Simulated assay, not measured.
Amino acid sequence: MTTELIYLTLTLMLAASLWIPYIVGVNMHPQTGVDDFARPPALSDFPEWVHRAHRAHLNMIETAMPFAALLLLAHALGISTVVTVWASIAFFWLRALHAVGMISGLARFPARPILFTVSWLCTLAVGWQVLAYGAGG
C-alpha cells in the first residue's frame, strides 16, 4: 500500500469516528421533553463543546470527501509524487489537529482557519497533480 493510501485510510477512519464526541456529549446532557427521533434538540441547548464536536464532524466530512476522491483518482491514474505523498501526510495531521482543537476549543482564531486552509491547499495540490500528470495518460 502506498503512503498516500495509508494516510487516506487514517483520514477516513478519523472522519468515520468523529461522530463519537458529539454523541457522547449529547448523552451526557440529555434534553427533556424532546423526541430525538422526531427532531433532535437544538445544538444551542447543549454545552459549547458539544456544538463544536458536531461542527468538527461535519467539517471533516466536507473536507475529507473531495480529498479522498482526488487521491483515489491519482492512485487510479498511477500518480504518486512527492507532492501527493506529503499532501496526504499533512492533510491527515492537519485534520486531526483541527478536530482536537475545535472540539476542545483550544484552536481559536487564527489557528483553526489556518489549519482548515492549509488542509484545503493539500486538496488543491493533489488535484493539481492529477491535472498535471493525468492529462498525458
Rank of each mutant, 00 (worst) to 15 (best):
L5Y: 08
Y7D: 06
L8R: 02
T9K: 10
L10Y: 04
T11C: 03
L14T: 00
S17P: 02
S17T: 03
P21I: 01
Y22Q: 09
A38S: 11
P40Y: 14
P41W: 00
A42C: 12
A42R: 13
P47C: 07
W49H: 02
W49F: 03
V50T: 10
A53I: 04
R55L: 08
M60L: 11
M60H: 05
A64H: 08
F67P: 05
A68N: 15
A69Y: 02
L71M: 15
L72Y: 11
L73P: 04
H75R: 08
A76W: 14
G78K: 04
I79D: 01
V82Q: 14
T84A: 09
T84V: 00
W86V: 00
W86G: 05
S88P: 11
S88V: 09
S88W: 02
I89H: 06
F91L: 00
W93P: 07
W93S: 07
H98C: 15
G101S: 03
I103G: 08
L106R: 14
R108L: 11
F109Q: 01
A111N: 05
F116T: 04
V118W: 00
S119A: 15
L121E: 06
T123G: 13
T123L: 14
L124E: 06
V126N: 07
G127L: 10
G127C: 13
G127D: 07
W128P: 05
Y133I: 12
Y133V: 14
A135E: 10
A135G: 12
G137Q: 12
